[in-house]
Design a protein around this nucleic acid. Structure first.
Length: 905
RNA sequence: GGUCUUGUAGUUCAGUUGGUUAGAACGCGCCGUUCACAUCGGCGAGGUCACAGGUUCGAGUCCUGUCAAGACCACCA
């Protein structure tokens, strides 16, 4: 193999597709322990996530990037940990969304409506549409690096999943938990279908409140009533007042007259009516208002529907028949005005129900629909979270979950659409219902062959609710279902906790008897760079594809994953992604450096002594080698802890800081010196390689492409080198490499870190002074250091100190004590170490005294603070180790202060 | 009306069970490019952790209240 020069900048454009192809064709996305294969081992622990299925005709948006990034991170982590890992992908038929899209397209291209086309032909066209555009979203999800097992891809309208839907429906029906009947539901006039309570959004809007007179029959008296929907007067069946209301008591039991229609309706008393609000009297329209509906039931009032499917007034509306609801509102009000029934109208702010999909105002209407009796299902679902079988992360959403579940209402599952699972109920002319798992040929009650299927389809969420098990083969006891169910994590946005998560829990428990997953992880929503909610009208839409084109997938993923916490919203924007692109490039260049060090490694000319600790156990390791190794062990422990606590952002942050601040800024710089030296070269290369290797492993779930690419180069370089024995885990791709396991803290680690930190402080202090005094970075200067008991450590590190601080090593003297205080020098005190830089002739030393005085003042303020602290109850009540730490600090500051004072003399 | 979240540097955010000099990124100022990386390096400025109480030896962190921003649920016509 020839050594290729790696480019200076990481080329994600050519790398990403190549790496993904390698993973996918290499079979790395499939569980290594496949229950369908003969060598299956049931003892290996599975880890599985079912993807939140995107809409089949949708296009990638930032929300997809969010969940794909988080789930891919979880999946890659567990895969590297050795779990038999499966991320099962798929898409959702998305009834309303898809049907609307196809309808609109038909109208535009062929100028036909779906009604003109007919149900069968329309469905044929929709399937064609799905075939044509359904792969766009999955291609785009691949671009994000998703390591899903595409061989197990599912679609909610697949035969298998449709069978699951059928089974679920029949199961509920047979159990008596599904019923059909006329009920007051939310009707979307534009879509001409019922929608569930969840699909209605309430928004505060400025409307008008209309006051008018309800005339009492055979008298000149009236009851004033207010409404925001005057057209519903046409459907009134009562006027209600509070039983104790002195103003209206006398009218209770009398008859009121509906304006214009002159229908006679009773005046009733009900405590629901608030005396304080409005006029204190309420018109009752049971056919078009949920509260009125309840009152009508209580009082046995008739229920009148006065709107048709398109929200036009029907035959019950007299002369307004055929008019649109808003037109009728205007006309009826005008007529009432002429009739002298109008009192006034005024502006009013209230919440208006609008369709989540179409945005139009939803009308409560009486309609024949299918419902699921939800209470028993909800009870079991509440229990599962309460007793800990399901854990929700972050925990606070459990409260939200309980609150919703405890107040849940029956679920309207029928939709007047064509694209979806048709309700598996057949009717015969006598009205018998046949509900079976297989399509029937006759009525099961009267054996009539003249049967027809219900026209409606099921709510899309009915099938999505089965997703964790329907994708695994349920209702069949497939090997996948047996091994992988219940699934592990359910990862999704908190915005669909009710829509989807709650329903999966109810369905899972009801149909499989098991929880569908043991952990729910809820991520936040994506906001723009300034924390603003993303919306098309604001024009701040963030296109993940553009960001990936410009900065690469890894950069986008890192932005999404780092700096966010579970359940909290995350900000994303070009600036941030750019910063992460820089990190990816930094990592790439560390990789280039390490690889070139390996490639140019020559064996030492003489045998080496064995000192120090580091990447390969005992060896010829320097302080820096041991230090970076100790830091790396600490990092492994921190990252592991954060992963266990779902603190992925924190883990990513720590990795970022380690790579850039510790590894690149310090260790790599020192390694440059150590590589020049025969005695330290081999251990340095080993350390470089191992530190890079472990960083790549831990970063892989965050930024899979660049880590895989560097790792491949690193592996190749090591294979050809004399240190190929460094790790036994180099045979496969990084995606299946072993996750670094944390080791307990070793005794030598804290001291090593402390010693190295002293070196860092000395270097920083010198750099600082140089910058302050404007000493040119290229200018090598001399230095004398009085190091006290740190003399030995510092002497060992003299080359390092000299190279990092820009000193001339030949003119660097380190001793426990300096016989003579160098003249005309700038003095620095770092802890107990004194540093003299003879800058006379180069810079003006006049400011030295005041600089030292400033530092003395600072040290003294610390001394004062710590003495106070140690004199307080802290000394007696705080843990001893902590007190000792503060005592040590105090001693350090005192030492520093003494030394500065000596300088000032 | 109920529940919840957030309030930390100019901006956007981290800050794990309370531990005593509060961090990052971007931005800003100064200096620097043969030596892995200008998609870079060095140095620096910038915060009374919204406010007021309380618990504690000790509070950005826990409790109570206030203010501000936001979310969700439920809603009186």
């Amino acid at each position: 193999m020839t050594k290729k020069e790696l480019p200076k900048a990481y080329d994600f454009k050519s790398t990403e597709p190549r790496i993904y192809e390698m993973w996918e064709t290499g079979g790395f996305f499939q569980p290594h322990n496949d229950p369908n294969k003969p060598d299956f081992d049931p003892k290996v622990e599975p880890f599985i996530i079912a993807i939140p299925p995107p809409n089949v005709t949708g296009e990638l948006h930032i929300g997809h990037a969010m969940f794909v990034s988080v789930e891919d991170l979880m999946v890659r982590y567990h895969r590297m940990k050795g779990y038999s890992t499966l991320w099962i992908p798929g898409s959702d038929h998305a009834g309303i969304a898809t049907q609307l899209m196809v309808e609109q397209n038909l109208l535009k291209t062929e100028e036909v409506t779906r009604e003109e086309l007919g149900r069968e032909e329309f469905l044929k066209r929709t399937w064609e549409w799905k075939k044509k555009y359904g792969s766009i979203i999955t291609t785009q999800i691949r671009r994000l690096g998703a390591s899903c097992d595409w061989s197990r891809e599912r679609f909610t309208l697949d035969p298998g999943l449709s069978r699951a839907v059928r089974e679920a429906f029949v199961h509920l029906y047979e159990k008596g938990l599904i019923y059909r009947g006329p009920r007051l539901i939310n009707w979307s006039p534009g879509l001409k279908t019922a929608v569930s309570d969840l699909e209605v959004e309430y928004e505060e809007e400025e409307v008008r409140l209309y006051y008018f007179k309800y005339m009492i029959k055979d008298s000149g008296e009236n009851i004033p009533v207010a409404t925001i929907r005057p057209e519903t007067i046409l459907g009134d069946t009562a006027v209600a007042v509070h039983p104790d209301d002195g103003r209206y008591k006398k009218f209770i039991g009398r008859t009121a007259v509906v304006p214009i229609l002159n229908r006679e309706i009773p005046v009733i008393a009900d405590e629901y009516v608030s005396m304080e609000f409005g006029t204190g009297a309420l018109k009752i329209t049971p056919g078009h208002d949920p509260n009125d509906y309840a009152i009508a039931h209580k009082h046995g009032l008739p229920i009148i529907s006065m709107l048709d499917a398109e929200a036009k007034v029907n035959e019950n509306g007299g002369r307004y028949k055929g008019q649109d609801r808003f037109e009728a509102r205007k006309n009826l009000w005008a007529d009432m005005k002429s009739a002298g029934l109008v009192i006034k109208e005024e502006p009013y702010t209230t919440t208006i129900p609008r369709s989540q999909r179409g945005g139009e105002i939803v009308e409560p209407m009486i309609s024949e629909q299918w419902f699921v009796t939800i209470e028993p299902l909800a009870k079991a679902a509440i229990e599962a979270v309460r007793d800990g079988r399901i854990k929700i992360v972050p925990e606070r959403f459990e409260k939200v979950y309980f609150n919703w579940m405890e107040n849940i209402k029956d679920w309207c599952i029928s939709r007047q659409l064509w694209w979806g699972h048709r309700i598996p109920v057949w009717y015969c002319p006598d009205g018998h219902m046949t509900v079976t798992r297989e399509d029937p040929t006759e009525c099961t009650t009267c054996h009539s062959k003249d049967i027809h299927q219900d026209e409606d389809v099921l709510d899309t969420w009915f099938s999505s609710g089965l997703w964790p098990f329907s994708t695994l083969g349920w209702p069949d006891e497939t090997p996948d279902l047996k091994y992988f169910y219940p699934t592990s994590y359910m990862e999704t946005g908190y915005d669909i906790l009710f829509f989807w998560v709650a329903r999966m829990i109810m369905s899972g428990l009801e149909y499989t008897g098991k929880v569908p997953f043991h952990t729910v992880y809820l991520h936040g929503l994506v906001r723009d760079e300034d924390g603003q909610k993303i919306s098309k009208t604001k024009g701040n839409v963030i296109d993940p594809l553009t960001l990936m084109d410009e900065f690469g997938t890894d950069a986008l993923r890192f932005n999404i994953l780092v700096g966010s916490t579970p359940g909290n919203d995350t900000n994303i924007g070009p600036k941030k992604v750019e910063a992460n692109r820089n990190f990816v490039n930094k990592l790439w260049n560390i990789g280039r450096f390490v690889i070139s060090a390996i490639d140019t490694l020559t064996p030492p000319s003489a045998p080496l002594s064995q000192i120090g600790r580091g990447a390969g156990g005992e060896g010829n390791y320097t302080l820096a080698d041991s230090w970076i190794w100790a830091k790396l062990q600490q990092l492994v422990r921190d990252v592991e802890r954060n992963f266990q606590n779902f603190q992925y952002g924190q883990a990513g942050q720590q990795l970022y800081e380690f790579v850039w601040s510790d590894f690149a800024d310090w260790y790599v710089e020192i390694a440059k010196e150590q590589l020049k030296n025969d005695a330290t070269r081999t251990a340095t290369v080993k350390t470089l390689a191992r530190a890079l290797d472990m960083s790549l492993r831990m970063l892989h779930p965050f930024i899979p492409f660049v880590t895989e690419e560097i790792w491949g180069h690193l592996r190749n370089a090591l294979r050809e080198s004399s240190i190929s024995s460094l790790s036994n885990d180099w045979s496969h791709a990084l995606i299946v490499a072993k996750w670094p396991e944390p080791r307990p803290l070793k005794d030598w680690e804290p001291e090593t870190i402390a010693d190295f930190e002293l070196i860092q402080e000395i270097v920083r202090a010198i750099r600082n002074l140089r910058a302050e005094k404007n000493v040119a970075p290229s200018k090598k200067i001399a230095a004398s250091i009085a190091a006290g008991d740190k003399t030995e450590v510092l002497k060992e590190q003299s080359t390092v100190i000299a190279s990092l601080a820009g000193l001339n090593e030949a003119e660097l003297s380190i001793a426990a004590l300096l016989k003579d205080k160098p003249k005309d020098s700038a003095a620095l005190v770092v802890g107990s170490v004194e540093i003299y830089l003879p800058l006379a002739g180069m810079v003006d030393l006049a400011g030295e005294k005041s600089r030292l005085e400033k530092e003395l003042k600072e040290a003294e303020s610390h001394i004062e603070r710590l003495e106070k602290l140690l004199a307080s109850d802290f000394a007696s009540k705080a843990p001893a180790a902590l007190v000792q730490k503060e005592r040590d600090k105090l001693a350090g500051y005192k030492d520093t202060a003494e030394k500065i004072k000596a300088q000032l003399k």
